[in-house]
């Protein structure tokens, strides 16, 4: 469902994440879950069956104590800019790239729950609802009205806080103009205490991710497979940069979630 004749400016939202600043506190993970109405873990959920649109992985240089050095790498949907694997495999056309924002969108209503996209995603950034979303009694009052909770049996993932995008677009309309890239940031960006995550429009040369894209110390995850992700990582440490191209991706256990 895309249209060729698209008027106005288009954005290419992206992020830059400074791994050297991330202290692994997890603020982005909970802020994301609060914003996007992701429920707390079901009793049986583990790191394989849980839902974390953004997940901070602890990676290390592979050495033993006392030469072990660790770093924290937040991994979310990399918003592939080219040939997003999840789009092409979906039998339901439930995944699409918005040409106006570059955001890879997931439509839970269309999703069959076949999880083909989860297998296809090289970043393991997609999550399956193994259970109905449930909150402790009374806590459902704290849900965000801008995001619809998903049902059991569908796949979901990061969409750069699309609810915030909607609200920003609405606020811009109240001021009589169309939404601009600087009008909003996703919840993880706002919550990050160390400002390790920054958000912006890659089409604007002054934005943080556009600057990062030019920066030699920047890297993207699995660059060799040609998906052109829009999340740029940065680290001064050599071993961290190397981990980004390793097939293991530093994600510890190779995921067989779902």
């Amino acid at each position: 469902m895309t249209s060729e004749k698209k008027p106005g400016k288009t954005a290419r939202y992206g992020m830059t994440i400074d791994v050297d600043r991330c202290n692994g506190c997890g603020a982005c993970m909970v802020a994301c879950a609060v914003e996007n109405n992701v429920p707390p873990a079901h009793e049986g959920a583990t790191d394989r069956k849980g839902i974390t649109w953004i997940r901070v992985f602890q990676v290390d240089n592979g050495e033993d104590y006392p030469n072990r050095r660790s770093a924290f790498v937040p991994v979310l949907c990399q918003q592939c800019g080219k040939d997003a694997p999840c789009v092409s495999v979906c039998p339901q056309q439930a995944v699409e790239v918005d040409p106006a924002t570059g955001i890879v969108g997931q439509m839970p209503e269309r999703c069959l729950g076949c999880r083909y996209c989860m297998v296809a995603c090289p970043y393991h950034a997609r999550y399956f609802n193994w259970w109905d979303p449930a909150w402790p009694a009374g806590m459902e009052k704290t849900l965000n009205p801008d995001v619809a909770p998903r049902m059991r049996g569908v796949v979901e993932k990061c969409n750069f806080c699309h609810g915030r995008w909607h609200a920003a677009k609405q606020l811009a309309a109240a001021n009589g103009r169309a939404i601009e890239a600087v009008d909003y940031v996703p919840a993880c960006v706002e919550a990050c205490p160390t400002r390790a995550i920054q958000f912006g429009d890659l089409n604007r040369p002054e934005s943080a991710p556009a600057q990062a894209a030019k920066n030699g110390a920047s890297f993207r995850l699995l660059e060799t497979i040609g998906t052109e992700p829009k999340i740029y990582y940065r680290s001064k440490k050599n071993w961290v940069r190397q981990i980004s191209s390793a097939p293991k991706l530093g994600l510890g256990k190779e995921s067989s979630r779902g």
Binding site: M1, S3, A100, M107, H166
Partner: peptide, 19 residues
């Protein structure tokens, strides 16, 4: 909704309207 959006060339993606 889609018919009107299409007519005005404002049909980009599902997430235009869905949340």
């Amino acid at each position: 909704c889609v018919a009107c959006h299409r007519q005005h060339g404002l049909e980009h993606s599902c997430l235009d309207c869905h949340k």
